[in-house]
């Protein structure tokens, strides 16, 4: 048991170290997040009233796309240098390593997006009452996005052109999170209670926590075996 926990911690630290040494990959999703969100005022209308209506959905869509963009790298370098083979030949449970990797990845993508989100909220004239809802919903929703994305990343890791494919596989699965996430922000803006939405986002996170690492582990095994 202790060695299992040890592996979890070691993997977590390793992935954080790796991420910090590849600084561009670290900030790219955040920059992408900002750019996508600023496309809407430019492309649709800079009118504050109009934007403030769209803001909950826009921020969420941008967060979704930014998470997706960052997912592809989750297993890629491990696949290329053979670390993934070593990982799959460990007598320790694979799902645990996957979970640890996703957690490290989320800290640097999902959590970072959550922290930057208010900036986007301001850019898109999201009423300030909506900010707590925005951050809470992203905090609960983005881990689910990372977990589901990990399955897509694991399925496409061995493919040369996995980038577009992973969005095709994963985006439809993101829809429920998008619905409840943006609705939570909407509710916060209009002063309605948030608990229901957050509970639903939490329930989806629990389900994803339980199933996604196992599915991603199985997918990795298949991808490496192929």
């Amino acid at each position: 048991m202790s060695s299992t926990l040890q592996l979890f911690k070691q993997t977590f630290r390793r992935d954080l170290t790796l991420a910090f040494r590849r600084k561009s990959e670290l900030v790219n999703p955040l920059i992408f997040f900002l750019i996508v969100a600023s496309l809407f005022p430019i492309g649709v209308s800079p009118e504050p009233n109009f934007l403030s209506q769209l803001a909950p959905g826009l921020v969420w869509v941008a967060a979704l796309l930014a998470t997706l963009l960052s997912m592809e790298t989750l297993f890629k370098s491990d696949y290329e240098d053979g670390s993934l083979e070593q990982l799959l030949l460990s007598p320790q449970p694979v799902f645990l390593v996957v979970l640890s990797k996703v957690l490290a990845h989320w800290l640097l993508s999902g959590l970072a997006l959550t922290l930057v989100a208010p900036l986007l909220g301001v850019m898109l004239f999201l009423p300030s009452e909506g900010m707590p809802g925005l951050m809470l919903s992203l905090l609960l929703g983005t881990p689910t996005l990372s977990l589901i994305g990990a399955i897509g990343a694991a399925l496409t890791v061995g493919l040369r052109r996995g980038g577009v494919l992973i969005s095709l596989l994963v985006l439809p699965l993101y829809i429920p999170v998008l619905i409840f996430g943006s609705s939570a922000v909407q509710a916060a803006v209009t002063g309605l209670p948030l608990d229901g939405y957050l509970a639903l986002l939490g329930a989806m996170l629990a389900l994803a926590l339980a199933l996604a690492p196992i599915a991603a582990g199985a997918a990795l095994r298949i991808s490496v075996s192929g």
Binding site: I151, L155, T156, G158, L168, P172, A215, I222, G226
Partner: peptide, 28 residues
Amino acid sequence: GVMALNSAIESETTAAKSTAVLALVGLV
């Protein structure tokens, strides 16, 4: 998505397994 994944993977057995995982995730 399932069809795209299936056609992207060359090995038939790998493609079958990968799409099966994806289809199951979709089913949930």
